[in-house]
């Protein structure tokens, strides 16, 4: 999920070969609902904080990672481990 418009996300998905859905939230309505607005972070504009949220099969939040430094994100292995530990594993 990102503040960028659909067209930007379509171009990114094409050039980077991304196949997962990239959701556009230009008004930050959902980013706000998740408490992840970063005020005036990019040329004075509000964007999302980098974050990963794991939701289980019943729609309950089970694990979150919100960065305090833009270069630090959970690794793929950490996310997979969180899925195994908190959401019944992949598939």
């Amino acid at each position: 999920m990102v503040v960028d418009p659909v067209a930007t996300n379509a171009e990114l998905a094409r050039t980077a070969g991304l196949e997962f859905p990239i959701l556009s939230d230009p008004d930050l309505h959902i980013i706000d609902a998740y408490g992840l607005r970063h005020v005036a972070a990019h040329d004075g504009e509000d964007i999302a904080l980098s974050a990963t949220v794991l939701i289980d099969a019943e729609g309950v939040v089970r694990w979150t990672s919100v960065t305090r430094n833009v270069r630090v994100r959970p690794t793929p292995d950490e996310v997979l481990a969180a899925i195994d530990a908190h959401a019944g594993g992949v598939g």
Binding site: I22, L23, R37, W63, T64, V66, R68, V70
Partner: peptide, 24 residues
């Protein structure tokens, strides 16, 4: 490269619903 912290959504609570457009 530091950014302000945030709690994010509460663990154990239902995730906020959304309906958004994907790249297609």
């Amino acid at each position: 490269l530091a950014v302000p912290g945030a709690d994010g959504p509460a663990v154990g609570r239902p995730a906020p619903a959304f309906s958004l457009l994907d790249q297609a």
